[in-house]
């Protein structure tokens, strides 16, 4: 049974790109287009891994990660941030919110897969 990844990004082309890339690696991919939608989808989809952008309207990535971690049942779910930013303070913030790791965009598919395998066997 292939692993399921939920990707959250407000850019449709980015969602499609990620989906194409991850599906090619054999993952099942579900998407959401902003933090709030992502939170609801977490309940419905219950993915093995969450990949989220940071800059999104309505609810940004940090808020999404915090809202997910607050729920006991999602405590052990790996969460990767996928963002064009790479400042230490943003990373620290993500870490504090409960992210498992950070990948910088633009991403190389190889690195993305390696990262995923690290947190999601």
């Amino acid at each position: 049974m292939s692993k399921c990844i939920l990707t959250v990004d407000d850019s449709p082309s980015m969602r499609l790109l990620l989906k194409a890339s991850l599906t090619a690696q054999g993952f099942r991919v579900e998407t959401a287009d902003d933090g709030q939608d992502g939170l609801q989808r977490m309940q419905e989809v219950r993915p093995d891994l969450l990949i989220t952008d940071i800059n999104m309207p309505k609810m940004d990535g940090f808020q999404l990660i915090e809202a997910v971690r607050v729920q006991n049942e999602f405590r052990g779910v790996p969460i990767l941030v996928l963002s064009t930013e790479f400042s230490e303070e943003k990373k620290a913030r993500a870490r504090a919110a409960g992210a498992t790791g950070w990948i910088t965009k633009p991403f190389d598919a190889g690195k993305l897969t390696a990262a995923i395998r690290k947190v999601c066997p």
Binding site: A20, S21, D108, G110, A114
Partner: peptide
């Protein structure tokens, strides 16, 4: 990363499922 199995680059995408 080199110790892990290489993964195909993002271009070209081999997946046939077009949105």
């Amino acid at each position: 990363a080199s110790v892990l199995p290489a993964a195909p680059a993002i271009v070209p995408v081999t997946s046939s499922s077009a949105p």
